[in-house]
């Protein structure tokens, strides 16, 4: 398992070296808190029961996890372009080990970013979780990072270049964010969108975070909407599906020969 450790260490070193990426990941939720928070707070139907910025907090943490883990996993595309993936593929390790290493790297990055943001965000909105709540939030963050990392990896292994990245952002990241319950309760959505929300891994992560952090508002209808066990099971399920799908796709790197050959013939 030294190889998994090596892959995770590389992800961390690379992340910490990109100062812009670090600042963006810490700053992004606060930009949403200030701008989206201010606007939605005024029109939020439940504003007599809960401060909208408090309601947003679990969703913002979910968002940090999503960007953190997904961007880390999508670095696989750059690895492929830069040739680094080939160094990994020619090493005497299984494809599954590579997938696990990349997904765990994404988990570590997503979790670390969420912990840093939580330490700043929760005091700012005067949200003080119980010890049990904080522990459950930690479980939610780790599992969501793993699920996002694994699915992101499957996505990264199947897209050919970073040019497709904008498409990923528009058609995967934003719908996932809006249908996650991060900004408004999913139960207010129409039946079709609500159905889509059920296949959204972030929805389960955010729901579990609401169980953890908004327990006090559960009776008013702003806590988690599904059972915590369902959330946990769904996140584990997404992680497994992502890893199983990503492993063989990574080996498609062999296709490098094929593209090179086509260019020349």
């Amino acid at each position: 398992m030294r190889a998994v450790y090596g892959i995770v260490v590389r992800e961390l070193v690379r992340f910490l070296r990109q100062r812009g990426r670090v600042l963006a990941s810490i700053g992004r939720p606060f930009v949403w808190l200030i701008f989206a928070g201010a606007g939605y707070a005024a029109v939020f139907a439940g504003r007599n029961e809960i401060d909208y910025r408090v309601y947003m907090a679990p969703g913002l943490l979910g968002m940090v996890v999503m960007f953190g883990a997904l961007l880390a996993a999508l670095s696989t595309v750059t690895d492929r372009d830069a040739g680094v993936l080939r160094m990994v593929l020619v090493a005497p390790i299984r494809r599954g080990t590579i997938a696990l290493g990349k997904a765990l790297g994404a988990t570590v990055l997503g979790t670390t970013q969420a912990v840093v943001v939580a330490a700043l965000l929760l005091p700012l909105v005067h949200l003080r979780p119980s010890i049990a709540g904080a522990l459950l939030a930690a479980v939610a963050v780790v599992l969501s990072s793993l699920a996002m990392g694994a699915l992101g990896l499957a996505l990264a292994a199947s897209i050919r270049s970073l040019e497709n990245f904008a498409g990923v952002m528009n058609f995967v990241v934003f719908p996932m964010l809006f249908l996650s319950g991060a900004l408004y309760p999913v139960r207010h959505l129409g039946p079709v969108l609500r159905l889509v929300a059920y296949v959204n891994p972030l929805a389960y992560g955010v729901d579990l975070l609401k169980h953890a952090l908004l327990g006090a508002w559960a009776s008013a209808g702003y806590g988690g909407e599904m059972s915590s066990w369902l959330d946990i099971a769904a996140l584990v399920g997404f992680a497994v599906v992502g890893l199983v799908a990503a492993a063989p796709l990574l080996a498609r790197e062999g296709g490098v020969t094929r593209t090179a050959f086509r260019q020349r013939v």
Partner: peptide
């Protein structure tokens, strides 16, 4: 196949772990 953003030493340490 080296990671251009890592140092020579870091690349070799990474390879050492992979092997």
């Amino acid at each position: 196949t080296l990671d251009r953003d890592l140092t020579v030493q870091e690349n070799l340490r990474f390879a050492g772990r992979l092997w």
